[in-house]
């Protein structure tokens, strides 16, 4: 089943300069009770975003109208902990399409890539530069160019990022891993018989 295609994204960004953001923060367990993939965005960062009586916490970045955009910029080891794909779904559902960090947890990275959400890993130095650029101008545009695997800032500075060729093709064309695997079912049957 095809997904949204990704080539280039130009957007302002939302800064979250905290390390080791785990998937329990991204979407707390008590919101994992749904049986569909939609609607998780409203509970993205629930306990950082809202008081226990559901009033928004004014000091949290997602509640601050100064910051907006389709890019989330976060500290290193983003997405550690639980394998819940709901974390990727909630970020996507909230309208974000890219997460930039200096380090991603493995399972989160896979889950993001399976949901048309691009994890962009940059160096610690470049991450600092991005945070500084947003601090200087919250509306500063960041360009994420998947085709050329490059992320650039308005001042012209840029850094290239890694993504494997297969996943890049999938994202650019909206392909799905399952379609590819299903096309191999006969080969898998043969393997299974001999296994």
């Amino acid at each position: 089943m095809s997904k949204e295609k990704f080539t280039t994204l130009k957007s302002s960004a939302i800064p979250l300069p905290i390390e080791n953001i785990d998937t329990d923060q991204i979407i707390p367990a008590r919101f994992l009770k749904a049986t569909t993939r939609e609607g998780f965005g409203e509970n993205l960062f629930r306990d950082w975003r809202y008081e226990s009586d559901n009033t928004p916490k004014a000091d949290f970045v997602l509640n601050n109208p100064t910051y907006s955009g389709k890019i989330l910029v976060a500290g290193k080891n983003f997405g550690c902990g639980s394998s819940r794909e709901h974390a990727a779904w909630s970020i996507y559902d909230a309208g974000l399409r890219v997460v930039i960090s200096s380090f991603f947890a493995d399972i989160f990275k896979n889950n993001a890539l399976n949901n048309a959400l691009l994890p962009v890993q940059v160096s610690d130095e470049f991450l600092k530069k991005i945070f500084a650029a947003i601090e200087k101008d919250p509306k500063a545009t960041i360009t994420v160019d998947l085709t050329n695997q490059k992320v650039s800032l308005e001042d012209g500075s840029s850094e290239s990022f890694d993504i494997n060729a297969y996943k890049k093709t999938c994202l650019a064309n909206g392909y799905d891993d399952i379609d590819y695997l299903i096309s191999l079912r006969d080969e898998i049957k043969h393997f299974e018989l001999a296994h």
């Binding site: 993939r37 394998s83 819940r84 794909e85 709901h86 990727a88 493995d106 399972i107 896979n110 889950n111 399976n114 949901n115 494997n164 297969y166 891993d177 399952i178 590819y180 695997l181 299903i182 191999l184 079912r185 898998i188 299974e192």
Partner: peptide, 22 residues
């Protein structure tokens, strides 16, 4: 190892998963 729901679907559908060797 732990996997996400899209990967659960891959395994249900094909008994396989796409993975890079760590």
């Amino acid at each position: 190892f732990g996997i996400g729901t899209s990967e659960v679907e891959q395994v249900l559908a094909t008994q396989c998963i796409l993975q890079y060797r760590p």
